[in-house]
Design a protein around this nucleic acid. Structure first.
Lengths: 126, 126
DNA sequence: GAAATCGGTATACTTTAGGAAACCAGTATA
DNA sequence: TATACTGGTTTCCTAAAGTATACCGATTTC
């Protein structure tokens, strides 16, 4: 029953090295995009329409400008949100979810579905 | 730790309080379960069969006993994995994914799908 | 003239996630 | 007798994540 080979220590024994990388890395990539306290709240907020900096901040309670700035930059780098500057005074800046950002929808939906079931379960257990 | 509490925060203006809670909290709950460096690797490892403590540790490179212990406890609390102790000597402990834990599969699959596309995109852009 | 708005930045701090190493008792192996 | 395995715990540490607060110049409103 215990047929653990010693030369396969880098990956789970049931997976080859290639299979292991192929399975774990993308999941980790996706999680990197979504994890953290604010990223998803911002993304979800943007799925409801273009928003200005302070507007996002007002909508998400507790979110400091420093964090918002940092997260928006990361969303931009990953092409999930875009930043548009209009030459008004004072300057107007709008953030918008990109078409690519919208491809997150099924994933977020799945998170929502599972999370909702889980929440019901936890509450029922108390 | 991963307790589900009622959140009285204000919500984005475009959503009613109820809609906001309904939308954001479950997503956060799901993410709490999956985020972190080791949780998903452990879950995925367990989907391939029962495992013993040291066996999991050997399969996932870099995973320290402290982290493994902590993560397994959380998985147990959330009823995603179960712990079975057998009265052998030395004691045998087996961890197994629960039926409930298996319900994470579609979500993990979605993370994998999106992550794989994202990975291709990033690599292609370089 | 004072206050508030815009889109942020700078600095300093606390909190959390995670890592390294040592250690435990009981048993088996060399 | 010495070593290694079992399933973990304990302590100390660092790096990253996140918080708090003040500030900026330009402009609009009270």
């Amino acid at each position: 029953m215990e047929t653990v080979e010693h030369d396969k220590r880098k990956c789970p024994t049931h997976l080859s090295g290639h299979e292991c990388t192929a399975r774990l890395l993308p999941v980790k990539d996706a999680l990197d995009i979504l994890s953290g306290k604010w990223k998803l709240q911002i993304i979800i907020s943007l799925t409801f329409g273009k928003k200005r900096f302070k507007q996002i901040q007002r909508e998400i309670p507790g979110l400091t400008p420093k964090m918002l700035s940092k997260e928006l930059k990361e969303l931009e780098i990953n092409e999930l949100a875009s930043r548009h500057v209009y030459d008004t005074s004072p300057v107007t800046v709008e953030y918008e979810i990109t078409p690519y950002g919208k491809t997150l929808k099924p994933l977020i939906e799945e998170l929502h579905k599972w999370g909702a079931k889980h929440r019901k379960r936890i509450i029922a257990r108390k």
